[in-house]
Amino acid sequence: MNNSIKMHRAQKGVTQQVLAEVIGVSRQSIVAIEQGKYVPSTVLALKMARYFETQIEKLFELEVDE
């Protein structure tokens, strides 16, 4: 699973800490998600999409072999 959280965060000009606080998770979780080590639940992914005012497919996409 690829994601563009880091890019969206940079476009919006928010830090990992701010994003973590807004969606109610630890900064460790944001780091793990951005690094692709952790795939968030649907609820968390939807919260991120809502915060970045985008569609969930723009934030997360399946890899070719998935």
Partner: peptide
């Protein structure tokens, strides 16, 4: 619980 307990920490 950790100070901030979330689904990643749960995992």
């Amino acid at each position: 619980k950790e100070k901030i307990e979330d689904e990643f920490i749960n995992k």
